[in-house]
Design a protein around this nucleic acid. Sequence first.
RNA 1: GCCGACGUAGCUCAAAGGCAGAGCGACCGCCUUGUAAGCGGUAGGUUACGGGUUCGAGCCCCGUCGUCGGCUCCA
Length: 648
Amino acid sequence: MGNGSAPLTADRDGRPKAGRSIWVEPRERRLSPQKGGGRFDSESKRFARDRRCTMSKKQNHEEELHALRHSAAHVMAQAVMEMFPGEAKIAIGPPIEDGFYYDFDLPRALTPEDLETIEARMREIVAGHHAFTRREVSADEARTMFAEQEYKLELIDGLEAGGEDEYGEPLEGEVEISVYEHDAFVDLCRGPHVGSTDEINPAAFKLLSVAGAYWRGDESRPMLQRIYGTVWESADDLEQYLWKLEEAQKRDHRRLGKELDLFSVSDEIGSGLILWHPKGGMVRKLAEDFCHAEHEKGGYDFVYSPHIGKAHLWQKSGHLDWYAENMYAPLDIEGQQYYLKPMNCPFHIEIYKSRTRSYRDLPLRYAEWGTVYRYERSGVLHGLLRVRGFTQDDAHLFCRPDQMPEEIDRVLQFSLNILRAFGFEDIHSYLSTRHPEKAAGSPESWEAPTEALREALERAEIPYQIDEGEATFYGPKIDLKVKDALGREWQLSTIQFDFNLPERFDLAYVGEDGKEHRPYMIHRALLGSMERFMGTLIEHHAGAFPLWLAPVQAVLIPIADRHHDYVHAVAESLKAEGLRVEVDERSDRMNAKIRDAQMQKVPYMLVVGDREIEAGAVAVRLRSGEDLGPMPVEDLVARMRLEIEAHA
RNA sequence: GCCGACGUAGCUCAAAGGCAGAGCGACCGCCUUGUAAGCGGUAGGUUACGGGUUCGAGCCCCGUCGUCGGCUCCA
């Protein structure tokens, strides 16, 4: 892919956007779905403000949960303030997806034991039947009330100036300053809250973790301590949520990567650099083989490019101006400086420029599984999802303006087909439009491509959100996100226009009129980075890959040593059919072999004993635990073939 | 990068400043097994790395590297 690094390095949660967002087809979840974390985004704040308008039952329920969580945050803040009388400074404490947090400035670091103490005190407070009461105050009155609370004073200043809310975002309309009070605690707060602490079920909340967080999200400002908690209407709901967290942990690709022997990261090599083991390598190869075939059918040309290029190239492309901090230090080769590539685009552009291009040559679609290296700060590395070296399924499309709408349609459709082939059905998208100040090219030049992207989304009939002014400076883009089996959102594909590089490299084609014209250039990555995609795939399937992707499709399990010859013969015939099978001829009992195959999430377990040999069959057990009984080998092959072709 | 927690056998984890352990896995042997773990034995360690305090450090202190949870970043 191209200039746009964001999609490949973006967090998997939808974080708040600075620009305005418009939902074209509103989806049920507007908050970050990330477990335990995430943030209250501008969308849901607006939602809270607009609560007077008609709402569905579901929205109503959401609002009640927000109030409940917000109220629990206040109760927690009271408990913490009591723990550090006169010393605790409170910042903000909003509800978030699945819970709430509150930020504190405290004289010492909190420990896990502190959380238990705080939680216990919260239960006492909740049992006290305290009403939450709202009161409007003047700015000066508020300053008196919070004279010792420097963070609150800053918030009051922001509110009084009418400029911004507690998240530092612009406020609309008249600003009223309100405080909410319960028991011995009063907080500067817009609300809403529940009526009384009675509504907070003492068996339905739990404090989860404590973590550092910058005041107002600004790394030049003080680091506060943030306590995350969760609260629900009932103990059952809490239980269910905690179960979901546990389930997510079991699916963690880092854990499964180890358990299933898929990949590793070695301290000897370095952080964020992935070693693919044979099994993980097989899954990746199968995924890539499939994509290669699709690209070939899809009219792409395959290109290959080196891992380093001269400084001059990166000056020309502009990467050294605007991307240098993500690039590694140059290598000195015979007095010339070379850089490891953070992106593939300049190389593909050089291929384009290697000869004169005619309008008849277009569109050109150059595809490469190109490995790039980007410096990421140590704290952001995360398994396969955020790494320092990764392979993009990258392509650059060069086309004439008249071809552009069709090309967009085509690439979007192509992308959706591939994602669906991997079992991702729940796909939605984000269209980022021109930033009013930071943008290459004229506003007019953005119109046709932006419209083409939007129309392509309409035709593809997938829900999309318009992120106004959120595009990178060089062109509008579409990002696709998928939801996995647990409802978590992952960003994979990106399709980005580029008005910048064609200019910088003076790209041209000779038109029918014999004159030179500037082609459109589109960067696109579908699975994004193979590393991130594999991480997503592992978590989506919880390591139980569909048959076509399973590194080992079947394990043959002889019951006793005398069955080995037959089992090997069956294994050979299955291998001859192109199936990936292993024979477990350890001296363990059959039960142990089944258990091991089960834990390795092998789709088919083929048990062979005297009876099977007699019948010329294998006894088939599925990963689901289902026992299909004895089956002739030909029938098994036919069954597996069907399953493979269906990508089931 | 920042705040906090953590780093012990291949893996998961024990070990109040006083002999470094268990289970699983690996290896060897016995058993020859019928749908989620048979039995016995053996090997396996510079307790991440470097320094310090102490009669004595896995444990306390300092530094480095790494991992985890967040924040920031990923125009």
